[in-house]
Design a protein around this nucleic acid. Structure first.
Lengths: 163, 163
DNA sequence: CACTCACGGTTCAAATTTGAACTCAAGGTA
DNA sequence: TACCTTGAGTTCAAATTTGAACCGTGAGTG
């Protein structure tokens, strides 16, 4: 982009170093999910999103969560989640039933088959993550990455102010 | 996931430190694009993908690229790009014409209106990137991020081997 | 108790994305 | 020249995703 065409003149453009970083980060942001999707699809007929869903359920108490909680964890809209759960349900991996206490809540529950599915998918997925990411980083870099990524994610939670 | 349920026993699971890093990175991977999309949509009626397309064209020779080159740069399928260019064309931001030398190639060309569009969209987008990412990082961290992200992206280019 | 309101989810139509089939141009090859 | 093959894009149908409208359920209020 052309920085001199600016109107109010006070835009805080990225420095060259930041531009480099941004280009690299954007690459990761776009390509890494695609690469992982490919692996999951190939080896387990799963979407990355579906994997996140199953994975979240598998580590939850009773292997169950309400749709809302689950949606928040996997960063998806309720609508999207509803459709995906429907698909996973038809595949026998998940079951849905209204919460006994408050029937407004729907619990998504991992079935035995769903457990087996995620357990069988996990090793290859872990292998892929390791190959794509961690095999390329030193131990120090893993720490740096954690710090940096956490900081960025933090900044997005509380809906920072819009100028 | 449960690591003891493993069958062949030689899965290289992620260490706890790596799991932390992965969780944070996955968060960035999922949420950052969403946040940027929101800003672009709100301020300029543009998709992140469309922004990448316009941005790529704006920095290309003659502000033009063949569909194939463009698709590679923005990491999209030819099919997706074709549709998006059609949309941008209907909006008057891009023009398409067959290459004079080799009519198999289609050149996507940024129009004057397209140039104006990206120029007017860029400041707010840059501001958003800065706010979401760089305002939260030290100068050193920017360097670390560059190194790390580049290393990861590198590893995905040449279709690394599948186990 | 009747009413209304606010939630949590679901659903439906519209927009996107994907993947396969298809078109057309350019190189060989015979 | 006729024929085949490959490469670049487009298109069409099917799958996904999004956003808005909608349906029950539970809380508050009068």
């Amino acid at each position: 982009m052309d920085q001199s065409t600016e109107t109010p003149g006070d835009v805080r453009w990225l420095t060259p170093a930041e531009q480099d970083a941004w280009q690299a980060l954007a690459g990761v942001m776009i390509k890494l999910p695609a690469a992982l999707e490919t692996q999951l699809q190939r080896d387990s007929q799963l979407t990355l999103f579906e994997y996140f869903v199953l994975s979240a359920l598998s580590t939850a108490d009773c292997r169950a969560l309400s749709m809302g909680e689950l949606a928040a964890i996997v960063n998806g809209s309720l609508s999207r989640l509803s459709n995906v759960i429907k698909k996973l349900e038809s595949r026998g991996a998940v079951r849905r039933e209204p919460s006994p206490d408050n029937r407004r809540y729907t619990h998504a529950i991992l079935t035995e088959a769903g457990w087996d599915l995620i357990v069988s998918a996990a090793p290859k997925h872990a292998e892929a993550v390791r190959r794509q990411v961690f095999d390329r980083l030193t131990e120090d870099e893993v720490g740096e990455l954690t710090t940096i990524a956490r900081r960025i994610v933090r900044g997005m939670e509380p809906d920072a102010c819009w100028p």
